[in-house]
Amino acid sequence: MSAHHPDDLTLLDYSAGSLGLAQALAVSVHLGYCNQCQSQLRKLNALGGVLLEETTPASVGANDDQIPEQNHSQMEELNKSFEALMARIESEPVEPPKRESTGFHNPLERYLPASLDELNWQQQTREIAKFDLTNVVDMGSARVALQKIKAGAKVPVHTHRGNELTVVLKGGFSDELGVYHAGDYIARDPSHKHSPTALQNEDCVCLTVLDAPMKFTGPLMRWLNPLFAWRA
């Protein structure tokens, strides 16, 4: 059970379907760990269900807006569109069922070429490695990556030019604002300057979603910027 969650508005946008893909990826990963957010999402989805139920129906099958008095012809159009749908369903081959899963799961599982331990990590420093997904998965303009920090290692102080979302997948880390474990969802805006330190017991692996490159701020750490530069 995680202790750090997406805020109410993020879950609202997720449920409404207006959250960006990369953010949705981070929320979806978190949901796999978090019963509390699953339950909150269920309520938000119910809100969507109520709104759908209460919406004023539009006439189906008609291309133009119809005069409401024409109930008979509306019924006819609806029936015609139903028949057309059934004909289409019968003529289309049924797609083979995708891998079944019944509850929330990490959406990345199906797409990573190997397990977290066996990924082809790009070493950034001796203690930090990255597996960049930006040019692999279609997540719009956001930079998506997995980051691995060696147990006990410290990432140099940095800020972000944009918003950064982090979901801890394995191990944990701490920074000036708290301690985070597997499943935790952390949102940071450009005003945050932080230097995460991995917990001592095991390597920490995180999913990070960034809408602008991060920037190292410590005087000796500037040289790291080009190394960490995300390929756009």
Partner: peptide
Amino acid sequence: KEITVDTEELWQIPTEDTTIRSIQA
């Protein structure tokens, strides 16, 4: 891009109730 993450993976719709205390829908 090489991989399209399915929408249904990003917005999952669970099909089984796995919680212990289920609030009736």
